[in-house]
Amino acid sequence: MTAVQAALSGALIGGLYALMAAGLSVTWGALRVINLAHFGLILVGAYLTYQLTTAWGIDPVLTLLVSAPVLFVAGAALQWAYDRLNIVEFNSLLVSFGLLMITIELTTQVWTADFRHIDAGENPYGTSAVHLGSIALPISRLVALGFAVLLIGGGHLVLERTFAGRGLRAFAQDRTVAASFGIDHRRLGMVVGGLAGVSAAVAGMVFALGNTIAPAHAYEWFGTVFAVVILGGIGNLLGSLFAGLGVGAFSAVVAVLWDPSYEPFVLFLAIILALVLRPKGLFTRRAAA
């Protein structure tokens, strides 16, 4: 029973991982920018939720009304700059690493390195849980999963069904050809960057609901979130949702059945195995060569 409880609540944390991974995965897959600064945006999102909830006493979810537009602009501006300076792939790793450092230091200056958390009085999601028989599911994690399904499912539908989505996929496959068919990659790229920013705002808000916030968290997310991106298949939104749930459940079960200290090892062993066996991600459709 403990394993089932662990797997379920782990899968719910996985919703948070998936939210964090989705934005990263899309910019990497579609725009060829590996944006480490995305972790900085998530951090800022979390702090904005904390700050606004504490200052105005509003429901944490409502803070998205402010943080989502702010981070949309930030994400779009980042993408605009990357595009203008022609920064892709390797250079994007270096540049965004520099930007991440700056963001983390600036958040440290504003909110200090201390742990912050939303007061229980302002956070209706903080401590309550839904009980299914003997299994307790914390509300904050259910919210995470809900947003993940909503956002990623929506994003997936947009990519699959709309003209802009097709344009984006065409652009990911061959920039020059896509451009010659009238796809304005600059504008499309900025919209995608902005939406990645929105996903960061949601991920940050969800994180703030159930956790304490400190600038150093941005580093701790690295390993798991990149694992989710790679396992899900780079640029594959639904893949990152499933991979997020799977990784969450898997590491929670390992932590319960063996020892929490094995968690990172087992996780990374799994990733390496997956990369060897299915280098393009676990959830990619087999592509014709």
Partner: peptide
């Protein structure tokens, strides 16, 4: 490990190396 992985060599290498210190740090702490 990293150089045997065929696809996306450079990026995977960068991310794998990003993870190694965290794993070691966790191991050392525990």
């Amino acid at each position: 490990v990293a150089f045997r992985l065929g696809a996306l060599r450079g990026e995977i290498f960068a991310l794998l190396t990003l993870a190694v210190p965290f794993i070691l740090a966790a191991f050392v702490r525990i």
